[in-house]
Computed example of a mutant assay.
Amino acid sequence: MFNQGLKGVIATQTEISDIDGEKGKLIYRGYDAKELANNYRFEEVAYLLWYAKLPIEDEVIQLEQKLKQDRVLSPKLKEWICSLPRNMDMMSVLRTTISLLGTNEFQWKPTLDQAIQISALVPSIIAYRYHFMKGTKYNEPLSHLNHIENYLYMLTGEIPSVAITKALEAYMILTLEHGLNASAFSARVTASTESDLVSAMTSAIGTMKGPLHGGAPSGVLDLLDEISVKERADKVIREKLTKGEKLMGFGHRVYKTHDPRSVALKEKLQQSQGQDASLDLAVHVEQVAVRLLEEFKPGRALYTNVEFYAAAIMKSIQLDVELFTPTFTASRIVGWTTHVLEQAEFNTIYRPQAEYIGRLDR
């Protein structure tokens, strides 16, 4: 039977994650992703995906040390990043720079050390290229900062506040992995040929670059900017719904109820209520929008998706829009490498069929 885009077709078995769209559940290796985001750090959840268990203290310390060691850019890598065309977008820079790592050391079969090395480098590549393009000073990694704090420091040159760090960390934990999406599938297809991890990550980044998969939530930013203050939320949203306009950041193709990632992010932001006006505005806008959506579209069960709060967090950090999808990539790289490692363990090359519908009588 032909299914356009392979929708609903089971192409592999996995122990990495599970998505229940009807119940609004996202599971990482048996653990509720929402609970992980609320109770664990980025490094601990990355460890869970890579090693299939939550770490004890010594194990997470070792992972943190390796991430810190591997995130330092070599002079040669910096030179390569600067040599890329100035009219190359950040996702293309990531794709090309990661591909330059593909020396003989990165041969089949992929290893955990390789996965950690690539994951550590991605935030540094983003920050270095960002400052190069802006003509500003790149901030070398600080060894006492964790993965998320250091990423923010490299971008801004300032030690981030606890509220901002926790918000971005929750977002990056909740976007580490999301089943056999287009980019994860792309990585597994490449790996199934017994190609190397660098090639598989290049495939995944190229897939994430597409606006149908990893596009920046600019529509949500426009909505929040238009509302600007809590008092305007009801008026602006009511006008949009009256005109039949779509509210960006609401509804999801997979989740038929609350997006668990959005719920977790909101809970995290509510813990820091009063510490950041942008984040407080987003929580208020969601409350107003959900109420009005039920009024205008009863029974549709339209709730915020992860892009809504992602936009709010990026806005509060004052990240340029061009950094949204690369930041998404800086978290999802952990999930992609985990998929490749799993593919390598039980490898069969992907070889689907295509149904010919052209002429036969020429």
Score class of each variant (00 low, 15 high):
residue 250 F to S: 06
residue 250 F to L: 11
residue 251 G to H: 09
residue 252 H to G: 07
residue 252 H to F: 09
residue 252 H to E: 15
residue 253 R to V: 12
residue 254 V to D: 15
residue 254 V to W: 14
residue 255 Y to N: 11
residue 256 K to P: 01
residue 257 T to P: 01
residue 257 T to R: 02
residue 257 T to F: 03
residue 258 H to V: 13
residue 258 H to F: 15
residue 259 D to C: 05
residue 263 V to F: 13
residue 264 A to F: 09
residue 264 A to C: 04
residue 264 A to G: 04
residue 265 L to I: 14
residue 267 E to S: 14
residue 267 E to I: 12
residue 267 E to N: 14
residue 268 K to E: 15
residue 269 L to S: 07
residue 270 Q to G: 14
residue 270 Q to L: 15
residue 271 Q to I: 15
residue 271 Q to C: 14
residue 271 Q to E: 14
residue 271 Q to F: 15
residue 272 S to M: 12
residue 273 Q to D: 07
residue 273 Q to Y: 14
residue 274 G to E: 13
residue 276 D to Y: 13
residue 277 A to R: 02
residue 277 A to W: 12
residue 278 S to L: 14
residue 279 L to R: 00
residue 281 L to Y: 13
residue 281 L to V: 05
residue 282 A to Y: 11
residue 282 A to K: 01
residue 285 V to K: 04
residue 286 E to K: 04
residue 287 Q to S: 06
residue 288 V to Y: 02
residue 289 A to H: 03
residue 290 V to C: 05
residue 292 L to N: 01
residue 292 L to Q: 05
residue 294 E to C: 01
residue 295 E to T: 08
residue 297 K to G: 02
residue 298 P to Y: 14
residue 300 R to Y: 01
residue 301 A to T: 07
residue 303 Y to M: 02
residue 304 T to S: 08
residue 304 T to M: 09
residue 306 V to H: 09
residue 306 V to E: 09
residue 307 E to N: 06
residue 307 E to Y: 08
residue 307 E to H: 03
residue 308 F to T: 01
residue 308 F to C: 02
residue 309 Y to R: 02
residue 309 Y to C: 04
residue 310 A to W: 12
residue 310 A to T: 09
residue 311 A to P: 00
residue 312 A to F: 06
residue 313 I to M: 08
residue 313 I to W: 04
residue 314 M to I: 11
residue 315 K to C: 05
residue 315 K to N: 08
residue 315 K to A: 07
residue 318 Q to N: 13
residue 318 Q to C: 12
residue 318 Q to D: 14
residue 319 L to V: 06
residue 319 L to Q: 09
residue 322 E to S: 15
residue 324 F to Q: 12
residue 324 F to I: 15
residue 324 F to T: 12
residue 326 P to S: 08
residue 326 P to I: 10
residue 328 F to E: 03
residue 328 F to L: 02
residue 328 F to W: 08
residue 328 F to V: 00
residue 329 T to V: 03
residue 330 A to I: 06
residue 330 A to W: 05
residue 331 S to M: 04
residue 331 S to E: 02
residue 331 S to P: 02
residue 332 R to Q: 01
residue 333 I to D: 02
residue 333 I to H: 00
residue 334 V to M: 06
residue 335 G to L: 03
residue 336 W to Y: 06
residue 337 T to K: 00
residue 338 T to D: 05
residue 338 T to F: 04
residue 339 H to S: 04
residue 339 H to N: 01
residue 340 V to A: 00
residue 341 L to Y: 02
residue 341 L to P: 03
residue 342 E to G: 04
residue 343 Q to G: 00
residue 343 Q to F: 00
residue 346 F to L: 11
residue 346 F to T: 13
residue 346 F to W: 11
residue 346 F to G: 07
residue 347 N to L: 08
residue 347 N to C: 05
residue 350 Y to K: 01
residue 351 R to L: 02
residue 351 R to A: 00
residue 352 P to G: 05
residue 353 Q to P: 01
residue 353 Q to T: 12
residue 354 A to H: 13
residue 354 A to D: 10
residue 355 E to N: 10
residue 356 Y to W: 11
residue 359 R to W: 10
residue 361 D to Q: 11
